[in-house]
Amino acid sequence: MNIVLIGYMGSGKSSIGKKLSELVNLEFIDLDDYIQEKENLTIPQIFETKGEIYFRKIEYRYLKEVLQRNDIILSLGGGTPCFGNNMDTILNADATHSIYLKSSIPNLVSRLTPEKAHRPLIAHLKSDDELTEFIGKHLFERSFYYNQSNQTVNTDGKNISAIAEEIVSLLF
């Protein structure tokens, strides 16, 4: 079985994916890391030098490539499910189970505020109010895609281990 973790930035996809990987002994792959390794460029460098259209094309190609593997845990970028045929590709992949890691806006704001400088999408936002508005708008736009996941796990008020164990109990 492949497990695909979907959610907004800061929802814990990578951290939970790594913990889940330990619990069920499956390989963990972060799609952004995979793309960077294959392209020999960081995601910001790809956007800067080749543009978003190029990035979204290779993102789709690498998503399909990774989903051909068996027994992996895959963490997606927050926007991945929302572009092209990515969500349909995930939902139609053999033996693949998608999980939306749902976090509230206040929870995402508190997680992302200390990381703003390292997150190009939000680095320009000056205040918590701007960040709250930005996240709210994005979640509204993306919820259609996120909510197509096979399962939803609420992450608010839970630590990484508890969330990973909840996913294990849902799937195994």
Rank of each mutant, 00 (worst) to 15 (best):
1 M>V: 12
1 M>T: 10
8 Y>C: 10
10 G>H: 06
11 S>G: 12
16 I>Q: 00
16 I>E: 00
18 K>M: 02
21 S>V: 09
24 V>M: 14
24 V>E: 08
25 N>V: 04
27 E>D: 13
31 L>E: 03
35 I>R: 09
38 K>D: 11
39 E>Y: 05
40 N>F: 05
41 L>R: 15
42 T>R: 10
45 Q>D: 14
46 I>H: 09
46 I>A: 03
47 F>Y: 05
49 T>M: 04
55 F>N: 00
56 R>S: 07
56 R>T: 09
63 L>C: 06
64 K>I: 06
67 L>C: 08
68 Q>N: 15
72 I>Y: 10
73 I>P: 01
76 L>W: 05
79 G>H: 10
80 T>S: 15
83 F>W: 15
85 N>I: 06
87 M>T: 07
90 I>A: 02
91 L>G: 00
92 N>S: 12
95 A>L: 13
98 S>A: 11
98 S>L: 09
99 I>W: 03
102 K>A: 14
106 P>W: 08
106 P>V: 11
107 N>L: 06
111 R>N: 12
113 T>D: 13
113 T>M: 01
115 E>K: 15
115 E>G: 01
115 E>H: 11
121 L>R: 13
122 I>Y: 01
125 L>N: 10
130 E>N: 09
132 T>Q: 11
133 E>N: 10
134 F>T: 06
135 I>M: 03
135 I>F: 01
135 I>Q: 06
137 K>G: 03
138 H>E: 10
140 F>I: 06
140 F>N: 11
143 S>H: 10
144 F>G: 11
144 F>N: 03
148 Q>Y: 05
152 T>M: 14
154 N>C: 12
156 D>W: 14
156 D>Q: 13
157 G>T: 07
159 N>F: 12
160 I>V: 15
160 I>N: 00
161 S>F: 09
162 A>K: 11
163 I>H: 01
172 F>R: 13
